[in-house]
């Protein structure tokens, strides 16, 4: 299930100089905004939920998920260095699961943790808002990573497809076409946040909690299983 060497190679590649900087920009921005709102005393439960669902959950988490999920395997497949993992007596499921764990860890570090901090900065412990959105971010991180790791395994254009999904599908279609929101990781995570927050807070999801829970599990487990299957028959590129 887990191989420490695969994990080390993956996180060192993921957190290589430039990528780590890119990963830090968005969470830093979130914390900066939260701090400014607090400093200028404009903070309320409403402002907090808007910022945490509109920016954190809708933009920050999926973007970090795209970078970490596709970045955990895509570049290695692109340049062919994955051959050094594949030519070892390692189960393909071990390679995928390890990479998934690393991607999830990185996504939690750069999205769920900043969401929790931003929530506390904004409203403290009020209505459990900070905790609710952090839990939603954790769940969304896991599902996004599984989804984007699969994308990174099957497609050369994983980053583009991932961005289109995260930004166009979830953000744009989600607000225009009601049906699209049912198939949105963000909405599933919101369903959880809705449950955790107090009743006076305006957090609502397009899906019910049981549906959301089932879909989250299906996407995470199914995505991972499919990625393992694809890695088994991976054709190394750049050959005749």
């Amino acid at each position: 299930m887990y191989d420490p060497t695969v994990a080390r190679l993956t996180y060192r590649a993921l957190l290589g100089r430039r990528r780590a900087l890119i990963l830090m920009v968005l969470p830093a921005l979130l914390l900066l905004i939260a701090t400014l709102v607090r400093v200028f005393d404009a903070s309320s439960d409403d402002v907090a939920t808007q910022l945490l669902s509109g920016f954190a959950l809708a933009t920050l988490v999926p973007l970090i998920g795209v970078i970490a999920g596709t970045g955990a395997i895509g570049p290695e497949i692109d340049d062919g260095s994955i051959v050094y993992l594949l030519s070892k007596p390692l189960k393909r499921s071990t390679i995928i699961c390890t990479k998934l764990f690393v991607a999830i860890g990185v996504t939690l570090l750069f999205s769920a943790l900043p969401v929790l901090l931003a929530g506390f900065i904004l409203v403290g412990a009020s209505q459990q808002i900070a905790v609710a959105f952090a839990i939603a971010a954790v769940v969304a991180s896991i599902a996004y990573c599984a989804l984007f790791l699969l994308l990174g395994t099957v497609s050369r254009n994983a980053v583009v497809i991932g961005l289109v999904y995260a930004l166009v599908w979830e953000a744009l279609f989600g607000s225009l076409v009601p049906g699209a929101r049912t198939l949105s990781v963000q909405q599933w995570a919101l369903a959880l946040a809705e449950k955790v927050t107090g009743s006076g807070v305006d957090v609502s999801s397009a899906v019910s909690l049981p549906t959301a829970a089932v879909l989250l599990v299906v996407v995470t487990v199914g995505g991972t299983w499919f990625a393992v299957d694809r890695l088994r028959v991976l054709k190394l590129a750049g050959e005749e």
């Binding site: 190679l9 060192r12 340049d79 190394l236």
Partner: peptide, 9 residues
């Protein structure tokens, strides 16, 4: 392998 790419870092 023939390809150059390794874990260059």
């Amino acid at each position: 392998p023939e390809r150059e790419a390794m874990y260059d870092f």
